[in-house]
Design a protein around this nucleic acid. Structure first.
Lengths: 351, 351
DNA sequence: GATTAGCACTCTCATAATGAGAGTGCTAAT
DNA sequence: ATTAGCACTCTCATTATGAGAGTGCTAATC
């Protein structure tokens, strides 16, 4: 399905489209010609507005649920709005300051940060927010630790250069003292330092004993899993508040929305895709070609340090969402997180 | 509100009550006298059943939405059922085997376990499941690690005896080499080994330098936080499936349910409470004296190694839930997790 | 005394009928 | 190009209606 390119509209028609969207986003009700001339000083009569509305409908930017109803924007209508009509207003300085402050209050910890980012994003955009942690695209080994827990139980802690931590419990065939474990860990640390997944895989050889090889293999498979970008710990927020929107009046609709947000493969695919691109991406309703996304829009941005430590964040809500607000919010939180990471490493951030 | 003690019923009335509950749980529709005599060989006419139904209603075990409707169980009706009428059937051996198998498949890792437990519990009970990790009631220090990340950035990894791991990022006022950090960590490890929160607090003194004191304080506050039993990482599952039940037809009801499950203080309080008691606890609807819980029931059990490593799990669903099934499921998963932990430590498990 | 057939009674729910109101689209005039 | 005017269409809330469900009661029966 290729959408016909919509030609640029006359000034008044652009205004009418913009006002229809504004009103519809605010009220969730179809917008009538009379309502527009009454609420805004358009300088023309409702009949003229009706002509414009009919023209905008002709172009596929608006539609009509039935004869005697007002107009509702189509996906293409929102698209035109986002491309051409949206007024750009960054968040109020005061609000920016407050949110930055919150980030600096919280302890320096990726989990804490993405949680806070999701919360702020949800509040700002009034939609459901999603934030992945920022991770390296290619994980590099930093350190491992072997800790005797009980008899033959050993806790393996893996730490990677981007700060990611993973743990595994191991069962040994025979008990080893903490000293032996530490020596073993020391040898492996020296050999693995700074290696990526394939480098680590190259270290698996006969020179190690059975247990050591088992551990090395675990290291390798963990790194491969990280590199496959399997985000288990995505932070989400604002889902329940979003359900208060009238489009979720029936619980069917609510459930479909939550499914996309919490368990669908689709969202993960979109996040992975967004990681490849710079700037804020806006996917409106059916534009994603996914039936289940028909009524929802997604606004995504990657953030972090380009090539070093990157993540994705965004919001999901009904197509009837306050795009200017949401886009500003996504952009702002992405920038803020990038700056925080920059502060951690002293490198330029990815936009 | 003290409920009047319901005297023991005659055999037939017990049967009628049981059948009403069975039917109502199955169909979510009020149960009529005629329906009972038709579906079950009661040996009496519908008029007699009507008399029994009236008597059960008199006792407060059933009610009537309106004159020409069938009967629906009250909270007290369910309570009587759970106390006296419920047939005890453990899960089929085959199903038990399969679930145990899944646990042994998965790697030995608390997060993985509670996730799997929540998933199995949700599937078995057909309600929403909640599982907290198993942790020690009094955390004891095991090990800390200081890893230089970048210049003045240091990652502090804390490991406790129950396997809990916590991490913090620190900013130093001046850069330190990894060797210095390791020496520092070594000194602290020796002094903190095996201490609880107050023991660790006792180690904070002038003999340490500023940075070391900062770290020690962080250790202490982390341990205190753990001991305050703040479960951040509760595993949940089955919420969306549960919303398919007819009681959640309007999204208002769906939202209220999700609020209890995902952000309410109430659930956390109940979990904390359940940690104090042994056995499976069943809280039916308004019994909890909480308005928001009026339409839902909660089945909880603690699990783990008594005094050593304990957690709580359970299910939340509409009062119209299959109690025998849910209770069996909670009991079984609690036992299974306890046995897994037992296997890890070789100690008796808490029931 | 417990059980039952019979039946009047009540309440719900689905369906249809109705009409007001909303908002358009068109025509003809400016 | 704009506009006043108006017929037309469709929705939605309201009301009426009647079938059906299921009870509760009464009086007869075991």
């Amino acid at each position: 399905m290729v959408l016909p390119k919509v030609p640029r509209l006359t000034a008044r028609r652009e205004l009418v489209l913009k006002l229809v969207i504004q009103e519809y986003v605010r009220t969730a009700l179809p917008v009538a010609s009379e309502a527009l001339v009454q609420n805004y000083a358009l300088g023309v009569s409702s009949a003229t507005v009706r002509n414009d509305l009919a023209a905008l409908e002709e172009l596929g930017l608006l539609y009509h649920p039935h004869t005697s109803a007002g107009r509702i924007p189509t996906d293409q209508g929102y698209r035109y709005f986002v491309e051409h009509l949206m007024e750009w207003h960054p968040l109020p300085a005061e609000e920016q300051r407050m949110i930055r402050h919150q980030f600096y209050q919280v302890r320096t910890d990726m989990e804490e940060w993405i949680r806070l980012a999701a919360s702020a994003l949800a509040r700002l955009s009034r939609s459901a927010a999603v934030v992945t942690p920022a991770r390296s695209l290619r994980s590099r080994f930093k350190h491992l630790e072997l800790l005797s827990v009980h008899d033959t139980r050993v806790l393996l802690v893996l730490i990677f250069q981007d700060g990611t931590i993973r743990q595994h419990m191991l069962t040994l065939s025979e008990a080893l003292s903490q000293e032996e474990l530490s020596r073993m860990a020391g040898r492996m640390n020296t050999r693995l330092a700074g290696l990526d997944a394939s480098g680590a895989a190259g270290q698996v050889s006969e020179e190690w004993n059975v247990l050591e090889r088992q551990i090395l293999n675990l290291v390798v498979s963990t790194m491969q899993q990280l590199d496959r970008w399997e985000w288990e710990e995505i932070a989400r927020d604002g889902a329940l508040e979003t359900l208060e929107q009238p489009e979720f009046a029936s619980s069917d609709q609510a459930r479909r929305f939550l499914e996309i947000l919490e368990q669908g493969r689709f969202l993960l695919e979109m996040l992975a895709q967004a990681l490849q691109r710079s700037g804020v991406q806006v996917i409106i309703g059916g534009e994603s070609q996914r039936e289940e996304m028909r009524d929802y829009s997604l606004i995504l941005s990657r953030y972090g340090l380009v090539g070093r430590q990157e993540g994705v964040l965004g919001v999901l809500g009904p197509t009837r969402m306050p795009y200017p607000r949401s886009i500003s919010a996504v952009r702002f939180i992405a920038r803020t997180l990038s700056e925080l990471l920059e502060g951690l490493h002293g490198e330029p951030s990815a936009r």
